[in-house]
Nucleic acid binder design. Structure first.
Length: 246
DNA sequence: AAACGTATCAACCGCTGGGGT
DNA sequence: TACCCCAGCGGTTGATACGTT
C-alpha cells in the first residue's frame, strides 16, 4: 500500500487564488486556528488541497506579513546570512520577521545573484570569480560598460558621480563615461553586519504592518477582526486592484 | 502600436525529517 | 524497528508585468 496522496487531484482548483478564496481561508483560520492543513479546505469550503492552502496562508495571507520591497539593509543582511547559511531560505527568513522564505528566495534569484555576478563575485561562494571559472574578473567588471538596469542593480546612477557603498562587498565611485573607479573589494569577514547593528547606510523604506481601511489607519489589535468582517488594505499592496482596496 | 524579450514572483512539485503508532 | 502521515523546505515553473525595439 503506497502513501496516501495529500489530496484528490481531480476536481481541485489550481493556479492563482481569487479574493473569495482568500477571504474564505482567512476567515476560517481566524475563527478556527490551524490544526490540520489537510482538513482545512473541506472545512473552509475551498476546492484546494491543504498544501495549497498552507502555502497561500504562509506566503500571502498571514496578517503579520511585512509588505513592500525589501530594503537595502535587509538585502545586505540576506547576503551576509547567505554567506554563512547557504540556500537555507527558511533559516535566513527566520531573521526577518514578516518576510517569507519564498520572498527571500525569489529576491535572491532575481536580483542579488545578478548584483553579485556584476561585481565579479560568485553567488555561491561569495568570493571573487576568476578566469578559470569562465567568468568576469574584477578588472573586466570595472572596464565594462553598464546598462541602466545594471547600474540600478548595483546602486549607481548614470546621471551623477556617486559613491556607492550600499553594497557590502565593494566600494568605489562611478562616473558616466569613466565607469567605476577606485573600487575595492571589502573583506566580508571584517564587515559590520545588520545583525550586530552596524549595517551599511540604507534608505529605510519600510511599509511595515500598517493597515488601512479607507483613510483610517487601524491599530494592530484591530486588524484581524477588521479583516474578518471586511478585508482591509495594506499600504503598498495593490495585487487585488482597486476593487479590493476599500 | 505591435511584437518581442526579459524580469518578477506566486504557486506548484517532489523530497525530507519528525512525530505517532 | 518499521511504517505512515504530515508540515516544512528548496528547486522549478509559468503567468503576467514591464521594458525595448
Amino acid at each position: 500500500m503506497g502513501r496516501q496522496p495529500c489530496c484528490e487531484k481531480n476536481g481541485l482548483k489550481r493556479g492563482p487564488w481569487t479574493i473569495e478564496e482568500d477571504h474564505k481561508l482567512m476567515s476560517f483560520i481566524l475563527n478556527n486556528g490551524i490544526q490540520c492543513w489537510r482538513t482545512v479546505p473541506q472545512l473552509a469550503g475551498l476546492l484546494r488541497c491543504g498544501k495549497s492552502c498552507r502555502l497561500r496562508w504562509i506566503n500571502y495571507l498571514r496578517p503579520d506579513l511585512k509588505r513592500g520591497a525589501l530594503t537595502e539593509s535587509e538585502e545586505d543582511m540576506i547576503i551576509n546570512l547567505h554567506s554563512c547559511l547557504g540556500n537555507r531560505w527558511s533559516k535566513i527568513a527566520a531573521h526577518f520577521p514578516g518576510r517569507t522564505d519564498n520572498e527571500i528566495k525569489n529576491h535572491w534569484n532575481t536580483r542579488i545573484k545578478k548584483k553579485l555576478k556584476l561585481l565579479g563575485l560568485d553567488p555561491l561562494t561569495h568570493k571573487p570569480l576568476n578566469h578559470h571559472d569562465n567568468c568576469k574578473s574584477t578588472t573586466e567588471v570595472l572596464n565594462q560598460s553598464f546598462s541602466s538596469t545594471d547600474e540600478a542593480n548595483m546602486g549607481v546612477n548614470l546621471q551623477n558621480n556617486i559613491v556607492f557603498n550600499q553594497f557590502p562587498y565593494s566600494q568605489g565611485t562611478y562616473s558616466p563615461g569613466l565607469g567605476i573607479q577606485d573600487i575595492k573589494l571589502v573583506d566580508i569577514s571584517n564587515l559590520p553586519t545588520s545583525l550586530d547593528g552596524g549595517s551599511v547606510n540604507s534608505e529605510k523604506t519600510d511599509f511595515g504592518n500598517t493597515f488601512y481601511k479607507g483613510n483610517e489607519e487601524l491599530q494592530s489589535a484591530d486588524y484581524l477582526r477588521q479583516w474578518n468582517s471586511n478585508p482591509v488594505s495594506w499600504r503598498g499592496y495593490n495585487h487585488f486592484g482597486h476593487g479590493f482596496l476599500s
